[in-house]
Amino acid sequence: MDVFMKGLSKAKEGVVAAAEKTKQGVAEAAGKTKEGVLYVGSKTKEGVVHGVATVAEKTKEQVTNVGGAVVTGVTAVAQKTVEGAGSIAAATGFVKKDQLGKNEEGAPQEGILEDMPVDPDNEAYEMPSEEGYQDYEPEA
């Protein structure tokens, strides 16, 4: 019985440690998101679009440190934060509304985080759909 109880105690310690790591990862992701939003706020009209992409990228980098179902929630929060940063930029006159959601080359930025393969159960990952990809044929 002692062996059984000791095993359960060790398992509990492992769960607590994993929860603490997840909590730490979420806190880091939130900190990076805040950094990115402050970065966007300090940019001029020309830099705002690039700044919004930076927020998304920093958040995406930190999301990889967070495991399990938390990833889905962090990704949703990050996307809403990026959308909010863009709205703030438009409201303050840093950028025109028609410039939001495009990178410096004018290509749409939507789907940055949505296409990231995420499995809350950590069982399997699927690649994003290939609808947006084109076949590449090298020139002879």
Rank of each mutant, 00 (worst) to 15 (best):
V49P: 02
A91E: 05
G93T: 05
A69E: 02
E57N: 10
G14F: 15
S9H: 09
E114M: 03
E114D: 15
E83H: 08
T33P: 00
Q62N: 09
K96N: 13
E46A: 10
G51K: 07
Y133T: 08
D119E: 07
T92M: 05
E130Q: 08
E20K: 03
A140N: 13
T72A: 14
K34V: 15
V15Y: 15
S129T: 08
E123Q: 12
Q24P: 00
V55R: 01
T75A: 15
A76V: 10
N103Y: 05
G86F: 14
G47N: 12
V40E: 00
A56V: 14
Y136D: 02
V77D: 01
V26Q: 00
T64I: 14
A124R: 08
A89F: 13
T44P: 01
E104F: 14
V74S: 01
E131G: 04
G68L: 13
G68P: 05
E83N: 08
T33G: 03
A124P: 06
Y136I: 09
Q62I: 08
V63P: 01
V95L: 13
V66M: 12
T22F: 09
M1D: 00
G111Q: 13
K45V: 15
G41Y: 09
S87I: 15
Q79L: 12
K58N: 05
G106I: 12
T44Y: 12
V95Y: 15
E28C: 07
K60E: 01
E139I: 11
K12E: 00
Q79E: 03
P117D: 08
N65F: 12
A17K: 11
E83P: 04
V55S: 01
L8R: 00
G84Q: 09
E114K: 08
A53V: 14
K96G: 13
V71K: 07
V3N: 03
T64V: 12
P128C: 05
S129E: 10
G36C: 10
V55G: 01
I112T: 07
T54R: 15
S42K: 14
V3Q: 03
T75K: 12
V49H: 14
M127L: 11
V95D: 05
D2C: 03
V77G: 03
A78R: 07
A11Q: 00
A30N: 00
V63H: 01
G47P: 02
S42D: 03
E46C: 07
K97M: 07
G7V: 13
A19G: 02
E57K: 09
G73R: 06
E28K: 07
E104C: 02
S42E: 13
S9F: 15
G47T: 15
A30C: 07
Q134A: 06
E137A: 07
E123T: 08
G67I: 11
P138W: 11
K102S: 01
G14Y: 08
P138Y: 12
E61T: 05
A29S: 02
E139N: 09
Y125V: 13
G132M: 13
V15I: 12
V16L: 10
D2A: 01
G25D: 03
T92I: 03
P138H: 05
G68E: 13
V26I: 15
K80I: 07
V118G: 09
K45L: 13
E131A: 13
F94N: 04
V49N: 02
V37Y: 14
T92E: 04
V52I: 04
Y136V: 10
T33A: 05
G68H: 08
T54S: 12
E130P: 11
E130M: 08
V82H: 04
V15S: 00
S87Q: 15
S9Y: 13
G101Y: 13
A107P: 06
Y39G: 03
E137T: 05
V77Y: 06
A69I: 11
K60I: 13
S129Q: 07
V71H: 05
F4L: 09
